[in-house]
Nucleic acid binder design. Structure first.
Lengths: 110, 110
DNA sequence: TTCTTATACATAAGAAAATTATGCATATAT
DNA sequence: ATATATGCATAATTTTCTTATGTATAAGAA
C-alpha cells in the first residue's frame, strides 16, 4: 500500500478473500481490484504483494498457473483446499480484531 | 500483544485513545486496562508498550511525570496538545481502515 | 521463611511485514 | 518518440511487533 496505512497482517487476508470470491486472479489484477473496490483508498504495492503471494504459495495455500496473454506473462493464483480453510480462519480473525478494536476505541457502543 | 494478532499500527492508536479517556495513565495500568476491556483477548506486552510510549514521548505527543507509589516507580503519561490532535487523526484512520476492510471482506453489506 | 505472583520499569535480539527503490519486458496511447 | 499501462520480480531499509531477559519492590501462599 502506498498512501494509506495498511495494518500488519491485513494483506494476506485481503488476498485470500479476493481469491475466495474470484476463483483465480493474477497479481496485477489484485492490485487493480483493491484499488477499484476501495475507490483508490488502498493501493497495494508490488513490493508487498508479490512476496506475499510467493509465501502463500510456499505454504500451500495457493496454486499457480502461468499463462501468456497478449505476449505478456500472467501468473494466475487460486486457493487450494487448505487455502480455502485458512481463508475462513483469517476472516474470523479479522472480524474478531475489528470487534476488539471497536471495544477499545468506542467502548460506549459495545 | 501475546496471544492474539495485533495489527501493525494499532498499538499507538490504543494508547492514545486510552489516554484521551483517562487523562493520565502509567504503563502497567495500560496493559491491565486493555486486558480488562477486551476480557483478556488482547494482551499488550511490555516489549511493545514501553518503546511505543517512549516514541510517542519523543514525538511530543505525550508528557511524562514520574511518581513514587508504595516505594515503586510509576511513570504517568498524558496527552500533550499535539497528542490530542493526533489522537483524533489516528481514530479517524482506524475507522477508515475498518470501513475499507469491511468493503473488501464483506462487499455485500456495504 | 521461602517461593510465587503481582506490580513496575527497561532493553536487546530476532522475526514479520510493510515501504521504497529498482529492474526487466511488452503493449498502447499521445 | 515518449509516456503510461500492463506484468513480473527482488533488494535494501524501516517499522512494529514477539520473545527473552534484567532489575526491583510488595504481597500472599506454602
Amino acid at each position: 500500500m502506498s498512501n494509506s496505512k495498511l495494518y500488519k497482517g491485513s494483506l494476506t487476508t485481503i488476498i485470500l478473500k479476493l481469491l475466495n470470491e474470484h476463483d483465480k486472479m493474477y497479481g496485477y489484477e489484485i492490485t487493480q481490484k483493491v484499488k477499484a473496490l476501495t475507490k483508490g483508498e488502498l493501493k497495494i504495492t508490488e513490493g508487498a504483494l508479490y512476496p506475499a503471494l510467493h509465501k502463500l504459495e510456499a505454504e500451500g495455500l495457493l496454486d499457480v498457473e502461468v499463462a501468456k496473454v497478449d505476449n505478456r506473462l500472467r501468473k494466475y493464483y487460486k486457493l487450494t483446499e487448505t487455502g480455502t480453510k485458512e481463508t475462513v480462519n483469517k476472516l474470523e480473525e479479522l472480524a474478531e480484531y475489528i470487534k476488539t478494536m471497536q471495544t477499545l476505541v468506542n467502548p460506549k457502543l459495545v
